[in-house]
């Protein structure tokens, strides 16, 4: 299932002194199977764009098609759309609310019309999938969990109804290194299961380079680049224009090139940089 964005614009508080153009004529296509990174500095329109995908923000100008569904249609089936496109907000652990972890995760499936038993079964599946011990956590209060566990419980709530598209807004912000790695591994695991497409906002270029097959760069609400991480991070002009910086591994490759040491890799993650260095020095 494709997601097509056509000439999308959005203005906050139009015709007031606080008017702010958040999106300005953005067009691109997300193909099934993509892990697509949406990047850009704060205020570039990333979150506004992503909130359009499951109609949390209704389209005021332009078009979005999710498969053959037109999101500007008057009789849009919101429930079906939101079941298809799961959305994980920034710091989702702040949205845990129920008295037990199990009930919190069941909330989504119940909203999508699953019966009590089916919702409970889906919640169990989801909690296991995010690597939690169901028997141990199901009756716990979400507030007794650690930071990383809370975030995983929140993700379980979103994936319980098995969306085919997952939109993640800064999924690793504020986690420790292990927590970050676990979340990214989880997303990659889900992609081997029911999840088809991932749309991920991140400020962490190391994560974008290592996990995404495509990147969309937003700047002041405009789409500046629609390309691959390899292309983007080998274009100094693009990086300078966006305040984003290079992933560490690419930065090291570039510093080496300046010193006359060329490597046979785009160096999109530390492992491929290390492997290339080992080849070069015959280790």
């Amino acid at each position: 299932m494709q997601i097509k964005v056509e000439d999308l614009s959005y203005v906050y508080s139009p015709k007031t002194p606080f008017e702010k153009v958040a999106l300005d004529g953005v067009s691109f296509t997300v193909n099934e199977g993509d892990t697509i990174g949406i990047i850009g500095s704060t205020g570039s329109g990333k979150s506004t764009l992503c909130q359009h995908f499951n109609a949390l923000i209704r389209i005021s100008h332009g078009k979005i098609y999710v498969g053959d569904k037109d999101l500007t249609a008057r009789k849009l089936d919101l429930l079906a759309l939101r079941k298809e496109i799961g959305m994980l907000f920034q710091f989702p652990e702040y949205q845990l609310f129920d008295d037990t972890v199990a009930k919190d995760v069941e909330f989504g499936p119940k909203n999508f019309g699953y019966g009590k038993e089916e919702a409970a079964r889906l919640a169990e599946e989801a909690l296991v999938m995010v690597g939690m011990n169901y028997a141990e956590v199901k009756n716990k209060s979400p507030f007794e969990l650690s930071g990383g566990e809370k975030r995983r419980a929140a993700i379980a709530g979103v994936i319980a109804s098995k969306p085919s598209v997952l939109v993640l807004d800064e999924p690793t912000a504020g986690l420790d290194p292990i927590g970050k790695r676990e979340i990214l591994e989880l997303v990659n695991d889900l992609k081997k299961s029911f999840l088809k497409t991932v749309i991920m906002i991140s400020h962490n270029m190391d994560e974008i380079a290592a996990n995404c097959n495509r990147v969309i760069v937003l700047h002041n609400g405009k789409l500046l680049y629609d390309t691959t991480p390899e292309q983007l991070f080998s274009d100094p002009e693009a990086i300078a224009a966006t305040d984003l910086g290079y992933p560490h591994s690419v930065h090291i490759k570039r510093l080496l090139a300046e010193r006359g040491i060329e490597l046979d890799t785009p160096a999109l993650d530390a492992d491929s940089l290390l492997a290339a260095l080992k080849r070069r020095y015959s280790l």
Binding site: T42, F91, A173, G174, M205, D243, L244
Partner: peptide, 8 residues
């Protein structure tokens, strides 16, 4: 700095 972008 956990909630900030690289510039922030």
């Amino acid at each position: 700095t956990a909630m900030l972008d690289p510039k922030g």
